[in-house]
Amino acid sequence: MSRIAGRFQALAEQGRKALVTYVVAGDPTPEVTAELLHTLVANGADILELGVPFSDPMSEGPTIQLGHERALDSGMRLRGVLELVRQFRETDKDTPLLLMGYANPVEYMGYAAFADAASEAGVDALLTVDVPPEEVDQVNAQLKRVGMDNIFLIAPTTPDPRLPLIAGQASGFIYYVSLKGVTGAGHLDVDDVRRQVERIRAHTTLPVAVGFGIKDADSAEAVAKVADGVVVGSALVQRVADVLAQGESSEAAITAAGALVQEIRAGIDRTTS
């Protein structure tokens, strides 16, 4: 069983929901990310999602775009991201970790070379925003070869006939994008999320995590009631950026991120059955 499947199963047995946290690797420096990952876990993150910086992050809102720009300025590239994961795995062998990014850096490295390097570094899964199931055959073949999961997005605009197509290619969990839009946008409609998660569950037994628009303990609690996991990204990236923009130290920023995760964890755990 993959680390991701194992984590969802263990949480389900405890009647708990998963907290997935997203940060951009290298934002604002590789050193901060290296420490931040452990802090996220210590404060209640179940699954780590690490953004791979890209020059053209087309699906990101302003908050995460700036994160990508800061990370690129710090010199972070796909190879550096894998090195960060390798370091992380020296002391944490249990927390599932997935990479989220865009097709081109992976395509340039080569799918086979990426799969080998990523699995060796300790990456559990890949989520490529701009690779829908229609384009995924080559990359999926390589991920399967090394036992990595491939995480797919499902959107409010995904029509029913596409659900089996996506479910058939996905493993680990399904990431439901709760809004039409870019990351960090808009307001959450929890009733709609509930209906959508039910719609997805009719086609898959994989856990369903929900992201986009979750900012705090209350929104996390609301989503955790209807899904298997909650993804927090922009709020976290913003918190770190805000503290640093005030001239505070990176330790202070990491502590602030940890506090936000703790708060969101508490919100999610109010749903523990």
Partner: peptide, 20 residues
């Protein structure tokens, strides 16, 4: 039918746009 010209082209976009 997949929008390919040899190896090129295709539909590399986020899921939200696929139905549009």
């Amino acid at each position: 039918a997949q929008g390919r010209f040899g190896d090129y082209g295709g539909k590399f976009v986020a899921e939200t746009l696929m139905s549009a």
